[in-house]
């Protein structure tokens, strides 16, 4: 699946998007998998309360299922307007 990062999450991880092969069943499992990879991921995902997640461009919770999902995006709370 495609994993996208925005704002400081993108800066901390160092890339805007990547292809990830994963067996993770939920967003939380994917986060744990990515965090275990490298420090920059662990740093970005250290505080999930400071993060939001979208699955196929809809806001979801971290316990949401990844079944059938093609695009996951992680970003901080939005500041539009």
């Amino acid at each position: 699946m495609d994993v996208l990062y925005f704002a400081w999450v993108r800066e901390r991880i160092g890339i805007p998007r990547e292809q990830v092969e994963t067996e993770a069943a939920t967003v939380a499992e994917l986060v744990a998998e990515l965090s275990a990879r490298e420090d920059r991921y662990a740093a970005a995902f250290a505080d999930l309360s400071a993060l939001r997640v979208a699955l196929d461009q809809d806001l979801m919770d971290f316990d949401a299922s990844l079944a059938g999902v093609r695009e996951v995006a992680f970003f901080p709370p939005m500041t539009g307007g």
Partner: peptide, 14 residues
């Protein structure tokens, strides 16, 4: 519209 697009539309200001 203003309330929702401030915290539900994916924009980030730097």
């Amino acid at each position: 519209l203003m309330d929702y697009l401030k915290s539900r539309a994916p924009f980030w200001k730097k």
